[in-house]
Amino acid sequence: MGLKELWLEEEKKSFQGWDFSYINDRTEEEPLPWDYDKIVRQYLNPDYMLLDMGTGGGEYLLSLGHPYKNTCVTEGYPPNVELCMEKLEPLGIEVKQVIDDSHLPFDDNMFDMVINRHESFDVNEVHRLLKPNGLFITQQVGGKNNKELSKFLIDDFKEIVSSNFDLNNNVELVQNAGFTILKSDEYFPYIRFFDIGALVYFAKIIEWEFPNFSVERCYEKLCQLQSILEKQGFVESREHRFIIVARKTQK
Rank of each mutant, 00 (worst) to 15 (best):
Glu86Asp: 14
Leu91Pro: 04
Glu216Ala: 09
Pro132Val: 12
Glu94Tyr: 15
Leu8His: 05
Asp185Met: 11
Trp18Arg: 10
Asp108Glu: 12
Asp155Ser: 15
Gln97Pro: 08
Leu61Phe: 02
Leu199Gln: 02
Val126Gln: 00
Asn70Met: 07
Phe152Asn: 04
Arg128Ser: 03
Pro78His: 13
Gly143Leu: 06
Gln250Phe: 13
Lys38Phe: 12
Ile137Asn: 00
Ser14Asn: 14
Arg238Tyr: 14
Gln250Ala: 08
Val171Thr: 07
Leu199Asp: 03
Met110Gln: 14
Ile137Met: 01
Ser120Met: 10
Leu51Trp: 04
Leu83Cys: 12
Leu199Tyr: 01
Asp100Ser: 10
Ile191His: 11
Glu89Phe: 09
Glu159Phe: 10
Lys131Pro: 01
Tyr22Asp: 09
Arg217Leu: 12
Gly134Asn: 01
Glu10Met: 12
Val81Ser: 04
Leu6Asn: 12
Leu104Arg: 00
Gln224Asp: 14
Asn170Lys: 09
Val126Asp: 02
Pro46Phe: 09
Pro105Val: 11
Lys204Glu: 05
Pro67Ser: 05
Ser214Cys: 05
Gln232Met: 06
Phe111Cys: 03
Pro33His: 07
Cys218Lys: 03
Asn164Arg: 13
Leu3Ala: 13
Asp100Glu: 11
Gly134Ile: 02
Thr71Gln: 03
Ile137Gln: 03
Gly17His: 05
Asn176Asp: 13
Leu229Met: 14
Tyr43Arg: 02
Val81Lys: 03
